[in-house]
Structures are given as structure tokens and as C-alpha cells.
């Protein structure tokens, strides 16, 4: 990784600008292949950006110092030049080259992020439902459900299928990778993967109303065996979720962590609920989400 080291050298001054009070956290601390791909792309771009900054700042400083008005040049009459075709071609061409150098890896990465980082391991699927103001995680294969925390096996790609039963939220676990929106009546897919066991903070990155700032969740990455163990434990010990309890959870407000030994997908999948999916009005409990959001907390400024 010679190139990576060269890039790191370029990037160092950028990071030291704030005198080292920035710890390596979140985006700067990638803990999985997805986040690392994005980190590399970011650092690749930072190199070019620093180059541009250095060029512009240098010219700026030199011109300001050399061509300022001073007593010695009182009689100096600046020339009336219209431009310089050669120079203008140069400073059009260089940005084009830089944009090209950024566009190619961007497009590559943008496509790559839609696929699991590894094909050797079978991905697991977790449905994520954002509600005011909590995150609900459903494991369709394991048939368990958690609220405000999620366990994943390390080294395995995780397909998060995102939806919302209210305002738009954004599902973001910076150390594992970039975000995607969770929207009502929609299903978006975000693939993340953790390198090794650990705990990673996740939060909503899109404003969704009063208590949005509290929409945090923990991602717990475990080894495959620990993860299996946890799943079995949940299956044996956690209570069953029923529709009544689920309606309560959806009510606007904050809830703590919860664990259930079945999923709400049994009776409703919010991603398929809206009528622009083929006007399916026969959906069970269609009004449920409406009931859940009757309360308002608007008390004026």
C-alpha cells in the first residue's frame, strides 16, 4: 500500500490543522470494508483538494504582496490586458483532469457499494424500520426483533432493508459506512460490514421531528458463534411481540432497548404499505401507523 502512505502524508497537515484535538472517530475511523472504501475515496480527494488550495493560496499571497499599492509605485499605471488564451486553457484543462481523476473512482465506488464487499460469505438480511423516534430491527430469517440496538456477525455483509413508518430518517453508522434514507412506503437497501467484533454508534442523520436527536442505536458486531449464541438466547428468553405492543412502540416518543422472539413483519411490512405500491388497500392494519402518530407536541416557540 505504497500509494496509501503517500496519500496519508498529503493528508496529515489537513488533520493537524486543528492541533490534534480531533480524535480518530467515526468517518475517520473505518471499521469495515464499506467505510474503508469511502475513507480511501475521501483521502484520495483530500489530496487533490489540498493541491488546489496550495496553488490558489500561493498565487493569492504572491499577487497581493507584489502588486499592492505602495509609495514606490505611485506613478504605476496597470496595463489593460484582456486575458491570456494560453493561461485560460491551462486553468480550464487542469480542473477537467482533476474532475476526471475524482470521477472515475467515485463512479467505481458508487457501483461497488451496492454489492456486498465479499462474495465468499452469504450476507444476512435485517429489516430496519424508523419510527418516531426509535429504530426497529427485524431479522426475518432468525425471526427475532430488537429496538434501538442491533447485533451483527463480524466479517459478514449485512443487507439492511430500510423503511420508515413516519418522517424520513437516515440510517448512519459512520464507522461501518455511509448512510441511506429510510422512507415511508419505500424500501432502500444499505450494505455494511464490520471487520471485527466491537460496538459502533449509529444514529439518524435526517431530521424527523422533535426528539430526532435521540434516535441513536448501537451496532454490536460479534463473532459468528457469539452471534448464533445471542440469537438462540433471544429466541428462548425474549417475549413475543404482538400487534398491540407494536402499536404502543410506534407511538411518538422515546423507548429504551427491547428484544422480541418474533418480528412485526408477520403482520405488516411498512415498506409495502403505501398505496403507490399497486393500491394494495387490503393490507392488514392499514390504519395502524396513522393511529400511532396522532399526538403532536407542538407547543409553539
Amino acid at each position: 500500500m505504497k500509494r496509501a502512505r503517500w496519500r496519508a502524508v498529503l493528508v496529515l497537515p489537513f488533520l493537524f490543522l486543528l492541533g490534534g484535538c480531533v480524535e480518530r472517530t467515526a468517518v475517520l475511523n473505518p471499521q469495515g470494508p464499506v467505510a474503508r472504501m469511502q475513507y480511501d475515496l475521501i483521502m484520495w480527494s483530500v489530496g487533490f483538494m489540498l493541491f488546489i488550495i496550495v496553488v490558489v493560496f500561493t498565487l493569492f499571497a504572491v499577487f497581493l504582496i507584489r502588486y499592492r499599492e505602495k509609495p514606490e509605485n505611485a506613478g504605476y499605471e496597470p496595463p489593460d490586458e484582456e486575458g491570456n488564451t494560453l493561461l485560460e486553457v491551462v486553468w480550464t484543462a487542469i480542473p477537467i483532469l482533476i474532475v476526471a481523476a475524482l470521477a472515475v473512482p467515485t463512479v467505481k465506488a458508487t457501483f461497488a457499494l451496492e454489492k456486498p464487499p465479499t462474495e465468499k460469505v452469504k450476507p444476512i438480511t435485517i429489516h430496519v424500520t424508523a419510527a418516531n423516534w426509535k429504530w426497529i430491527f427485524s431479522y426475518p430469517e432468525e425471526n427475532i426483533e430488537t429496538v434501538n440496538y442491533v447485533h451483527i456477525p463480524a466479517g459478514v455483509p449485512v443487507k439492511f432493508k430500510l423503511t420508515s413508518v413516519g418522517p424520513m430518517n437516515s440510517f448512519w453508522v459512520p464507522e461501518l459506512g455511509g448512510q441511506k434514507y429510510a422512507m415511508d412506503g419505500m424500501e432502500t437497501e444499505l450494505i455494511l460490514q464490520a471487520d471485527k467484533p466491537g460496538s459502533y454508534m449509529g444514529r439518524s442523520a435526517n431530521f424527523s421531528g422533535e426528539k430526532f436527536a435521540h434516535m441513536e442505536f448501537e451496532v454490536v458486531a460479534q463473532t459468528g458463534t457469539d452471534f448464533r449464541k445471542w440469537v438462540n438466547e433471544v429466541k428462548q428468553t425474549a417475549p413475543k411481540l404482538d400487534e398491540k405492543k407494536y402499536t404502543q412502540i410506534l407511538k411518538p416518543g422515546i423507548v429504551g432497548r427491547m428484544t422480541f422472539s418474533n418480528t412485526h413483519l408477520e403482520w405488516i411490512d411498512h415498506a409495502k404499505q403505501n398505496s403507490h405500491h399497486g393500491n394494495d388497500h387490503s393490507m392488514k392494519n392499514e390504519n395502524q401507523s396513522d393511529e400511532a402518530m396522532t399526538e403532536s407536541h407542538h407547543h409553539g416557540e
Binding site: 467505510a35 475521501i42 480527494s45 467515485t106 457499494l113 455511509g178 442523520a205
Partner: peptide
């Protein structure tokens, strides 16, 4: 702004 324009990287900057 150019950094934000890079879609794959933007997933990490968006709304931050």
C-alpha cells in the same frame, strides 16, 4: 463541495 459531490463519499458527509 467537490468532495460532497462524490456520491460514494457523500454517504459519509450527507446531513453531517
Amino acid at each position: 463541495g467537490v468532495m460532497l459531490a462524490m456520491a460514494a463519499a457523500d454517504y459519509q458527509y450527507h446531513n453531517s
